[in-house]
């Protein structure tokens, strides 16, 4: 997987931001450390970023910093959301998750406590996947089984869920700290989602509700 890179200088010019701002955002953890890629060039060391990710992130920061402080923003981009609990009404009522996905989740998990952020992510994820029509209920059940009890993993590490099918049999993987996952030819990757991205999306929705 070759990702297109952008140099720090080009990035600053393109987005009209200054070195001070960039370092400030980095200090506040708005830009993850591993996006800073060092390469030696003829002028010495230069820093590069994965182009698509960093441009998206900076757009988002610039757009949201009008209403939120940098610390609030850091909250949005961090993989956790403290100890916030959510009630069913606030989630379903505000249209963050659909009632169907909610019922499905309750059905699979026998859930009867207040929702923590980790639970909300799972329902939200299932909701998105089922809604897009890419997976069926059986597979959704499988993903929920996979995620059950693994909260610690996807809370602390960048994690992806990969759903594959081979010969009509589906299977799902939880990949953390991924470098590269390769499959044989007969295997078809149906869906690959990074939990971080989903969490970010969900968080900005939840912040909007509050």
């Amino acid at each position: 997987m070759e990702t297109e890179l952008i140099s720090k200088k080009d990035l600053l010019d393109l987005k009209g931001i200054s070195y001070g701002q960039l370092y400030r955002w980095k200090r506040k953890n708005l830009i993850p450390e591993d996006w800073f890629i060092r390469k030696s060039t003829f002028t010495g060391q230069e820093t590069f970023f994965p182009k698509e990710k960093i441009l998206q992130r900076i757009d988002k920061i610039q757009e949201m910093k009008e209403d939120l402080s940098l610390d609030d923003l850091a909250e949005v981009f961090s993989p956790t959301v403290g100890d916030v609990e959510f009630s069913t009404e606030s989630l379903v009522g505000n249209g963050i998750i659909s009632e169907m996905a909610f019922n499905f989740f309750m059905d699979v998990r026998n859930f009867n406590k207040l929702f923590e952020f980790e639970d909300v992510i799972q329902v939200y994820l299932i909701d998105q996947l089922l809604n897009s029509g890419e997976i069926n209920r059986e597979e959704a059940r499988m993903v929920l089984d996979l995620l059950n009890g693994k909260e610690e993993i996807f809370r602390t590490k960048p994690t992806e869920i990969v759903i594959v099918r081979k010969f009509g049999v589906s299977s799902s993987l939880l990949v953390s700290n991924q470098e590269n996952v390769l499959f044989d030819n007969g295997t078809k990757i149906i869906k690959k989602v990074s939990i971080g991205t989903v969490a970010e999306e969900l968080k900005s929705k939840l912040m909007g509700v509050k």
Binding site: K8, Y19, G20, Y23, T43, G44, Q45
Partner: peptide, 22 residues
């Protein structure tokens, strides 16, 4: 040092490869 990057920079008695700023 090798690289100094900041908005406002004042340097004295410094050896550096690259200095970038406003």
């Amino acid at each position: 040092t090798t690289v100094v990057e900041a908005d406002d920079i004042y340097l004295e008695y410094t050896t550096a490869k690259v200095v970038r700023g406003n």
